[in-house]
Design a protein around this nucleic acid. Structure first.
Lengths: 338, 338
DNA sequence: ATGAAAGCGCTAACAA
DNA sequence: TTGTTAGCGCTTTCAT
């Protein structure tokens, strides 16, 4: 005979009260007399009673669980956002179900199970505009986007101020005297890439440097795509004096390629990225980058989502967070190390 | 009036059958006549019915959700394990709740809520022997360890064959002619560090190289701890010709420090790590390392956990997975690049 | 301040 | 093959 866990009724019997009174106690209601409360509380600790989260969800109609869907869980930037979101959720006694979905179809299935089956109370979607996953965003359900604003629907979002970040990064290169500045972008379909490209163009324009599409190469955020980008510039005899890579990993690929073709960084080639990954300062040379606070983005997303769920604030909000220039030696010999 | 989701009874009414028959259909039981089944199925799709996961959990007494607790979600190795575990869980229609807990106390609280409140059916604990979290492992509950075997209890585990990995790494350095081999370890309290240290010692012993404790420095897996380790050897005038760092990040720190003190790698200093992070091949020089398949570890852990939950195989199992030497230029000029 | 009754949406056991 | 009756362990009325 398996020893089954005590229920609220077992506790009630033991304390000599109704199960309802026990419910009042575990929910901290104030209409219970002090004596009864003590009675119940001792019974609870004696029996090692824990309320069942499932039964609660059942009765209350909500799960106290959120989901966070991301293209993957391993990229440092994404994982940092998720960790920030999860920590904030726990702070509010919510749980976070993080899931990776590689493409639109797996995203659809996931949302279907999560939302359709009412397994969660709300959804955080990271990079909603990579592939076509945004098409499967549920209607009338609490959702917050991370990494891109909603194009049509009224969905709140939090992301980096990508246009400004790129503007600042490019301006940094310009301020160092560069005019031949190449750009390595993320996938064009992602808003984030587009906005960063827009910021790059604005900086060039303000400095009266003509935009040249031949200086732009599309990458996929990976180091190897950054490496290939620089190699292709070299192969075409179209070597820039500076490269703005739209994330650190691609920038690291550029640094690697520069080494392979004997371009001295930063004297012959300046390189700047975005993110400030933990290893960015360990590269040779240490990478200049735009530091963003990824856990804060996740935290903010969770807060907004909980506000919507708890109807505290259901206004459409589109938060854009800043990033900060960290100058290291990939753009300037005088750059700091850390 | 809010349009509430249809329940099993709504579907039953619409199809003109009992709710139980609907239950049979959605659960794919075979004792339903084809006609009735079609009837029910059309009603289901007409009404856009989805069964409620919560109600199911309630009635079945299990949540179809697992939890994975890790010191953090951002370290590449941990995130990779989690992603592997999560993907495998989804394959079996389970969900994965991943949570980070920084210390023993937050771990205890987390387990309490997760297991005590029966929010999940099973638990994967990554690095159970970092801090004292193993003390709070629940009894009589499906648990699988990742990264260390259980010391006392009968808990199944999956980890890298750390002793052998370290033996192989050290042997590689010895085979290159090194006899002055320093070791940078993870925290001594972690099994993983201890086992890797044991493998290092065994390799030395077999090569008749005396073990010297002054050549061992404890790090904390971070790049900066690797950097400090080498700097401290240099400061003490005790510079080795080779370093085995127990993970890649510390190895990257060693490389960085070598650069700073003008030690040429690999001619004056050979460096090997463990993990094969995606960026390891982008370093200067590309890092020789022991490649481990982290998603596989997570996958294996989930499989074992599900076997236990579903009572398919509750035998104690302690799986040790192999790693593979990847020679790059941090140990040998002839090393490959990728 | 407390208790009784009903119900959340499903599954399981039994009956027909 | 199908329907009926009971729960699963809570919360939420509504009485008392």
């Amino acid at each position: 005979m398996a020893i089954s866990r005590p229920t609220i009724r077992d506790v009630a019997r033991q304390a000599g009260v109704s199960h309802q009174t026990v419910s009042r106690v575990i929910n901290g209601k104030n209409d219970v007399s002090p004596e009864t409360r003590t009675l119940v509380e001792t019974a609870i600790s004696q029996m090692g009673y824990h309320p069942s989260a499932i039964a609660r969800s059942m009765a209350r109609g909500q799960t106290h669980t959120l989901a966070c869907i991301s293209p993957n869980l391993t990229d440092y930037t994404l994982a940092s956002v998720i960790e920030g979101a999860e920590t904030e959720a726990r702070q509010h006694d919510y749980f976070m179900l993080s899931s990776s979905s590689v493409d639109s179809e797996s995203f659809r299935r996931l949302v279907d199970e999560l939302v359709g089956h009412r397994r969660v109370d709300g959804l955080i979607v990271i990079n909603p505009y990579s592939d076509k996953r945004f098409e499967h965003i549920p209607e009338d359900f609490p959702v917050v986007f991370v990494g891109a604003q909603s194009h049509q629907k009224d969905i709140s979002s939090v992301c980096l101020d990508d246009e400004k970040v790129a503007y600042d990064a490019t301006s940094h290169l310009i301020s160092l005297g560069h005019t031949n500045i190449a750009l390595v972008t993320g996938p064009h379909e992602e808003d984030c890439s587009q906005d960063r490209t827009a910021g790059y163009r604005r900086a060039l324009k303000e400095a009266n440097i003509p935009f040249n599409n031949a200086k732009v190469i599309e990458g996929d955020w990976s180091a190897s795509s950054g490496q290939n980008a620089l190699l292709s510039f070299v192969k075409n005899g179209n070597v820039p004096t500076a490269v703005f890579a739209q994330n650190d990993r691609m920038a690291m690929g550029v640094l690697r390629a520069a080494r392979d073709v004997n371009l001295k960084v930063p004297s012959q080639l300046a390189v700047i990225g975005v993110d400030d990954m933990p290893l960015s300062s360990y590269f040779d040379p240490p990478l200049t980058t735009m530091r963003q606070d990824m856990p804060l983005i996740g935290q903010e997303a969770t807060r907004m989502l909980l506000d919507i769920i708890q109807k505290k604030n259901t206004d459409l909000r589109e938060v854009k967070l800043p990033a900060q220039l960290v100058v290291r030696q990939s753009t300037s010999e005088q750059g700091g190390d850390l």
